[in-house]
């Protein structure tokens, strides 16, 4: 009995110490800080009041939610079809395509922002091409606008969406399609009435993961214009690390609110994942 206790203790004490030091304590300290007056005063909810009454921060939330929602929506629609196309390839090719898709997911953050500058920046490949063809994007599109940033977000959503959706299709079995066809259903009918309803919880669950992923994204937007985009993660970064305007307590309150948004998205995912019918296979 003693040996049992010693091995468990020796191995788990450093483990739980690590989690306490670098996860739990910082998170609790952040929550506590969000309720503290600036410069270490007493308890206050003024930071939350400020966020909810300051149009600048409300705008940041609106922008973050909009770009996350839009990029997740585009990503998931493209991936629903693309992942299905992959399931129809020969087995060895499927694995290869997934590996390559996964590889492009390393193209995130700074390298990704830079690649888009090469493509669509002020003297980017496509901008030059358009000029030669006599098309002037002019004011309507630049990489540094919201539509440009959305393209970057869609890029990092796509590999994740494909990787998460691909396994879902294994639930749908060939026999179902054959049975439906024998009973006179067109493929269109099959997907509308059987395929899609079975996949739906998984699709919405994946959507919520993509949404959370985009809400927390910081590096790509930061690389494109520094602190110019008014997004929640960018505001948080500026509030805690800004040399002149550092206001860590307000940054903490923003971070708590962002965390709550992400938690809500992930709770939706948990709930829907449980709805995926595993009894069918």
């Amino acid at each position: 009995m003693k040996r049992f206790a010693s091995m468990l203790l020796v191995t788990t004490i450093p483990f739980f110490a690590m989690i306490a030091l670098f996860l739990l304590v910082p998170l609790l300290s952040m929550i506590e800080g969000s309720f503290q007056a600036e410069g270490g005063g007493g308890f206050t909810i003024s930071h939350y009041q400020e966020i909810f009454s300051n149009p600048y921060y409300l705008q940041a939330f609106e922008n973050s939610v909009l770009i996350s929602f839009l990029s997740s929506l585009i990503g998931i629609i493209a991936a629903v079809f693309a992942a299905y196309a992959i399931t129809r390839f020969p087995q060895s090719l499927q694995q290869r395509v997934l590996v390559i898709t996964n590889l492009t997911s390393n193209f995130a953050g700074i390298p990704l922002a830079f690649a888009f500058i090469v493509l669509l920046g002020n003297s980017g490949l496509f901008v030059l091409l358009a000029k030669q063809l006599g098309i002037d994007f002019g004011q309507s599109f630049t990489l540094y606008s919201w539509s440009g940033l959305t393209l970057v977000y869609v890029y990092f959503q796509l590999p994740l969406a494909v990787m998460l959706l691909y396994p879902l299709y294994h639930v749908i079995q060939k026999q179902w399609m054959e049975a439906a066809e024998l009973l006179g259903a067109s493929p269109w009918h099959f997907w509308l009435r059987i395929g899609f309803p079975v996949l739906f919880p998984g699709i919405v669950g994946t959507f919520s993961i993509l949404f959370a992923n985009a809400m927390g994204a910081y590096a790509s937007a930061y690389a494109l214009t520094g602190s110019n985009y008014n997004l929640v993660p960018i505001r948080i970064g500026a509030l805690v690390s800004g040399d002149i305007f550092a206001r860590p307590e307000l940054g903490s309150a923003l971070a708590v609110l962002l965390g709550l948004t992400l938690a809500a998205a992930l709770v939706v995912n948990e709930w829907l994942t449980r709805k995926i019918r595993r009894d069918l296979s």
Binding site: I19, V25, P26, L27, Y218, I236, V240, S252, L262
Partner: peptide, 22 residues
């Protein structure tokens, strides 16, 4: 639970807590 928490908390939120603590 910890795995979920780590996965759900993006770097920018962790950074706030770590700066405050350390």
């Amino acid at each position: 639970l910890f795995v979920m928490l780590t996965y759900a908390v993006p770097g920018v939120i962790m950074a706030v807590g770590l700066i405050r603590t350390y």
